[in-house]
Write a protein that binds this DNA or RNA. Structure first.
Lengths: 193, 193
DNA sequence: TCGAAGTTCGAACCGACGTTCGGTAGAGTG
DNA sequence: CACTCTACCGAACGTCGGTTCGAACTTCGA
């Protein structure tokens, strides 16, 4: 059955840390080999554990996938909301800041992002994934609203921007020629003309 | 072992037709459920055959995936090359025609496209997929050259355009508000400003 | 109509993989 | 130290799914 977090608070910290390490390792492996083609044994080896130990932290393989998606979408959505509340009134500026945040997030979580895209079919159908879907939709709505305010209304600019930014995860490299900021600014320039 | 195509030419036609139907059905199933999560039994049911009969047309499940990728990339690449030879000198016009062709192809082969994206990890690594990778790269080079000629040089416009067009497979609907042509023209307007 | 080639069937095989479980060692607590 | 909660191990289990195979049935050509 599922994992059992420790009750003693001193140990809880270590437990949570280890759990996060596991998610990070899983994201790496899944992104490289695909979710289904990555075995629990490989995951165990990547983290230096035995297969059985994994189930101390997660009840099933699918929960790892869920954790990856949650760790990707939730911080993005909450930070985006926060930013939209803070930043001033100039729509173009707001949009630029939002896209910068977004691209930076994608670049910092390439593996999560790749997994998220590859497992689209699982996430887009099925009761268990309702929450993840909702986060994605809300974020898209948010971007759409900012785009409209900045003068790039209609479905096409939003869909184009979504395509660009999501695709970034597939080519961005930390030591590449383009920084996340440059990329983001380039995208904004494209959609705002 | 692999499939054995019939020698008699009269039967060869029917054999090829059935094989194509199989690929189409596989693309549909794979796109909806994912490659690994689709069983040969489901494939058999979708085509009205028994599992064993599938192996009359394909030696292994992976060959179906290969066929899907080939049917996607090869016609696209050859038609794009042909177009680049034919069309006149105005770079902006050439680019527009190319993107129209490309978007139309993506929209007409949504399932193939989705499978192609989902199985990226398999395709991008592994000896057997060298050919598919080469087609993809050549096509991207071709688009890059046309972009440069049209005044949108540098890596970002190309990467952005790739993102937009590929992403199209995930939202385009045949009876939707936007036609492939409208979509393509919208994209070109974005990248050419 | 006869033989060969082509097509389909579906049960059986077999390896792989997610998960379980009983046990062991370690860390915290008093 | 003793007692408990925590962390981990790794062999064993059970299932699932890709593939095989030999037999039946159909279509074709002469």
């Amino acid at each position: 059955m599922p994992a059992s977090p420790p009750t003693r608070p001193a140990l809880r910290e270590r437990y949570d840390r280890r759990q996060d390490e596991l998610v990070a390792a899983a994201a790496r492996e899944f992104a490289g080999r695909g979710y289904d083609q990555t075995t629990m044994a490989q995951l165990a080896e990547a983290t230096g554990m035995a297969t059985g130990a994994l189930y101390h932290y997660f009840g099933a393989k699918e929960q790892l996938l869920r954790a990856i998606c949650d760790q990707l979408m939730e911080p993005l959505l909450s930070r985006a909301r926060q930013l939209c509340d803070e930043v001033g009134a100039d729509p173009a500026l707001r949009l630029r800041e939002l896209v910068r945040l977004w691209v930076a997030h994608v670049c910092a979580h390439r593996d999560h992002m790749l997994v998220f895209q590859q497992e689209r079919h699982q996430i887009e159908s099925g009761e268990r994934w309702r929450g993840v879907r909702a986060s994605r939709k809300q974020f898209e709505r948010l971007v759409g609203a900012e785009l409209e305010a900045a003068g790039a209304g209609g479905p096409l600019p939003l869909l184009a921007l979504l395509g660009m930014v999501n695709h970034t995860a597939q080519w961005y490299r930390p030591r590449g020629a383009l920084s996340p900021e440059q990329i983001a600014d380039g995208y904004v320039t494209l959609v705002l003309g």
